[in-house]
Design a protein around this nucleic acid. Structure first.
Lengths: 359, 359
DNA sequence: CTGAAAGCGCTTACAG
DNA sequence: CTGAAAGCGCTTACAG
């Protein structure tokens, strides 16, 4: 693409550049056309009420005539704010993150901010690079998922004084402003629900927790709830994977194939695992919940629509997205009351859990 | 947040500002510390090979010492490029768009670009505003979904000379550079598959096409394929909705409740409709594919895992994302060979379609 | 290989 | 309510 010729310093003062650099009129040209100073045009843009009506009209006409669009980089340079906010999530393949990003974008747009997006694929190094890059781009604030990051991430943000919120997490001790559910307690409670039903031999299809502090917290919730009843998950009943209905099926099979007594209940670390486990149970002819109870995390639409709807922990992703926007904006406006927000994880009781068979 | 004090013009020249504006050293400071000119530091950043090794080393030390990060807005103002690319999709709730965005972000990142994201919610006015905003932000290029937009959208892009690619679409006549499948032909072919099996009474659970030219093209593909066999869908067999497994179930019920002879096959306009139709058919005791054939669009993982896996048209979203990145970058590099790319829509034959009962 | 200087397109005290 | 001027932090011909 031909780059617009740049006038050398010996050129005569630029003509109204409409023709020279197509589509790139400048504020100066607007000012000239409207016979006012650049300062006044600038004021017209930023606080129209302080310029007189007649001048306002002239400027508007000039802007329309030239099709002028303000140059954000120039403004950013002058004001030291860009009006952009960055978000980096592990992946958009997870509906939660997709939903939260969508809502976040929506809310930020309403406040005049533009969203920069990064997907880290659960790679903490990459997440760190993406955040750095966004800082270079001059984002006014940043949202990340969870609190488990590259060791320098929060330091970097703090030292550059960029507001940040950690999403999808809320815990007893936190090093940053968070908005999300208490993952630990969510699964602690879910496990107690199973225990209350009478289950004692419980298996888990867990999500890999290496770079996922939310998953780690949920696993810990299960472990502690069981430990309080003097129970531990048998290693052969602890299956681990990443994501996917197929993977859920496979891990379900793996657990049921273990050469020890089968579990009476399985807790699934995410929605796709729960869906896969359910589908595999159906295919293999297990009676759910008669023979086997299944409990999930996440509430994907299909989980409610399967022949046996799945009991699961619901995380309010849209609310998290909305609250994140609020918190980010509040910090940018220098509001004092910018504390972490806990969102409620709710157990949606459907039909996949029952008392274990007494035989 | 306290804004860093701005020196008035009567202030003495700024001290090394590390303490004054925390985390915001400038190139000038780096230059001073390294005892070179700003131009040299700039060269070091942009083409290190043209600065002498010893100077290079000094500069690097200064940068590390000050924790300097280049200021993207300043660079953008000087170069008239931002290194950002915008994408606006209807929604991230659709896995296709989520996947494509994810891959697009990935590829762009590799080339040094940052992604700005907008979600239009299928609102063309809003899409237009988002594109405008991105243009203000100075994006170097833009990706949109489909070719059905606000009437001024392509004009705006052209007049500002911003490369654009229209994704998820590819048609005989196009007004822009596209990368995607031929939606018309995909469903034309799928319908012929059904016709080839012997179906003549065909129903459709269609996606609303008001602001969705892809959906419109798919509907047209069905219509034409049928028309070529002298068939038309009975109005009572044409159900329309937006999205969702639940909605798919409801529309399925609506079709089957019509006071005319039931269809022998239903074509579903998207994956959630197909999933919903299948689930409702199971719940209502219809024999699929014995009694009724079901064919879908989209290939969401769960569709392959249901008790009766669904035959469907697969759209290669990841490939579309990747190709979009390639095409965008190619245009930015002024490469001449930047033509539309057609991606293959493939019919994944599974178990939800069979010959109609001959009784 | 390096430096001095102008310029990118805005905003904002300051002065009127 | 408005204007002249300096400044935001880079890049890039030009000259050496």
């Amino acid at each position: 693409m031909a780059k617009a010729a740049r006038p050398t310093r010996h050129d005569p003062p630029a003509e109204p550049s409409v023709s020279v650099r197509p589509g790139a009129a400048t504020l100066r040209e607007v000012a000239e056309l409207a016979c006012v100073s650049k300062a006044t045009v600038s004021r017209f843009i930023n606080s129209p009420e302080i310029v007189s009506p007649s001048v306002r009209e002239r400027i508007q006409i000039a802007i329309d005539h030239l099709g002028w669009v303000p140059h954000a980089a120039a403004r950013a340079l002058a004001t030291q704010r860009t009006g952009t906010i960055g978000a980096v999530v592990p992946t958009l393949a997870n509906e939660h993150f997709a939903t939260a990003i969508q809502v976040l974008q929506d809310e930020l747009e309403e406040k005049g901010y533009t969203l920069l997006l990064g997907c880290s694929e659960y790679d903490l190094q990459r997440e760190y690079r993406q955040v750095r890059k966004m800082l270079e781009r001059g984002v006014d604030a940043i949202a990340v998922v969870g609190e488990g990051h590259h060791p320098d991430l929060y330091t970097l943000l703090n030292q550059r004084n960029v507001p940040c919120v950690s999403t999808f997490t809320f815990a007893a001790k936190q090093r940053s402003i968070c908005v999300g559910v208490d993952n630990y307690r969510a699964f602690y409670d879910a496990t107690n629900y199973l225990l209350g039903l009478g289950h004692r031999r419980i298996a888990m299809i867990a999500q890999n927790a290496d770079t996922n502090d939310r998953a780690a917290a949920r696993r810990e919730g299960v472990r502690v709830a069981l430990a309080e009843h003097g129970i531990a998950i048998h290693p052969a009943h602890m299956a681990e994977g990443f994501w996917g209905v197929q993977e859920g099926r496979r891990l379900f099979r793996q657990i049921m194939a273990a050469p020890i007594e089968a579990p009476t209940a399985i807790v699934c670390g995410n929605g796709s695992f729960a869906t896969g486990a359910m589908l595999e149970a159906m295919a293999a002819g297990y009676d759910v919940p008669g023979h086997l109870s299944l409990i999930g995390f996440d509430d994907f639409e299909v989980m409610a629509e399967l022949p046996i709807p799945i009991t699961t922990v619901r995380v309010p992703s849209a609310e998290i997205g909305r609250r994140t926007a609020e918190l980010l904006i509040a910090q940018l406006n220098g509001e004092s009351d910018t504390r972490s927000i806990e969102c409620e994880a709710t157990l949606i009781v459907r039909q996949s859990c029952a008392r274990p068979r007494s035989d």
